[in-house]
């Protein structure tokens, strides 16, 4: 009874969808529903980061796009009085535009350089938000953000949960489509070997910028959703922690795969809340750090590769055993 990859994917997807839809029915505990909302947002955010990494560009400052999307959406919604359901995409468009700008400075840069520029960019954006842009953004004080679904509507929490679930599914489907399309192939080609890609007629600059724009857009949607869920926005959103979390999720789940960010986020969120319930404080981060490092060293393709890896080890064990027994005799 082999669980093949082909079987695992449709079953896994179906199971995940059923659980996601059923969560509000399984528990009447709003804490769980709220946690699930935040988890869905993290999944979108991690997937956005993953898409950029898929094109071979590792960003250390994705909180910048998360925050720009959030601020953009909040300001547009507050100033023009449009429903947040529309402004999350407008805010994300602002993030995508800024993403292209920062992408332009990055297209010639490699790994560490890119990481540094994106990291610095998040700090610059935060500084601008609290200084030059303060009249608009409220500076460090922040500004209230309209709710995605007004609390005056009965059952608004469930409406909000399903709305965010739908957006999450749409985002993942979009990323799946991008990865399967010619664009995704071009991303892969650039990541693996830029010279060959160029020889095959792929313009790396164009596709790098496209990756930046798409990733920034999706990250912006995540940011806008989170802030419309919380109802208040402050520049802490641009913090380093917020840039690091999606990376941790993706690495644990599996870099460059569609399911990686989802699995990584779900597992880490449950683990995190579980550790929190035991009452430990700093040790939580130590555990996460150790898991991250162990994953990078021993499971470089993340949790998604775990079934294959386990099968491989079992196979190898079986091959090894007769040899050792013979040696013992």
């Amino acid at each position: 009874m082999q669980l093949t990859r082909e079987k695992l994917i449709p079953y896994g997807t179906a199971a995940a969808l059923i659980i996601a839809v059923a969560i509000p029915f399984l528990t009447d505990n709003m804490f769980i529903v709220n946690l699930a909302v935040l988890m869905l947002i993290s999944i979108i955010f991690a997937s956005a980061w993953n898409l950029l990494a898929y094109s071979g560009q590792g960003s250390l400052g994705h909180a910048a796009f998360f925050g720009i999307g959030a601020y953009g959406s909040t300001l547009i919604a507050a100033k023009l009085g449009i429903t947040p359901f529309i402004t999350i995409f407008l805010g994300a468009a602002v993030a995508a535009f800024i993403g292209i700008l920062i992408g332009l400075t990055c297209v010639r840069l490699k790994e560490w350089f890119l990481a540094m520029v994106t990291f610095g960019f998040a700090i610059i954006v935060q500084t601008l938000t609290v200084s030059v842009l303060a009249p608009m953004t409220g500076g460090w004080d922040g500004i209230p953000s309209p709710r995605l679904v007004s609390p005056s509507i009965p059952g608004y929490q469930l409406i909000e949960y399903y709305a965010i679930l739908l957006i999450t599914i749409a985002a993942i489907a979009a990323i799946w489509y991008i990865m399967k399309s010619r664009i995704g192939l071009a991303f892969l080609a650039i990541r693996e070997n830029e010279t060959e890609a160029r020889a095959a007629g792929i313009d790396p600059v164009r596709y790098r910028l496209l990756a930046f724009a798409l990733s920034a857009f999706i990250a912006g949607v995540a940011g806008a959703l989170q802030i419309h869920h919380i109802g208040y926005i402050t520049p802490e959103l641009y913090g380093v922690d917020n840039s690091f979390w999606p990376i941790t999720y993706v690495i644990l789940g599996g870099l460059g795969t569609l399911a990686g960010p989802v699995i990584g986020t779900v597992v880490l969120t449950i683990l995190w809340e579980g550790l929190k319930a035991t009452g430990i404080t700093f040790a939580r981060y130590v555990v996460i750090g150790v898991i991250l490092i162990l994953t990078i060293i021993f499971l470089p393709r993340g949790l998604v590769s775990l079934p294959e890896q386990v099968q491989e080890w079992i196979k190898r064990r079986k091959q090894k055993e007769p040899v050792t027994e013979a040696a013992a005799e």
Binding site: V267, I270, L271, E273, G274, A277, T278
Partner: peptide, 11 residues
């Protein structure tokens, strides 16, 4: 840790 987490929450 994972299982501990889940049971803790239930607890």
């Amino acid at each position: 840790a994972f299982i501990a987490g889940c049971t803790q929450q239930q607890a």
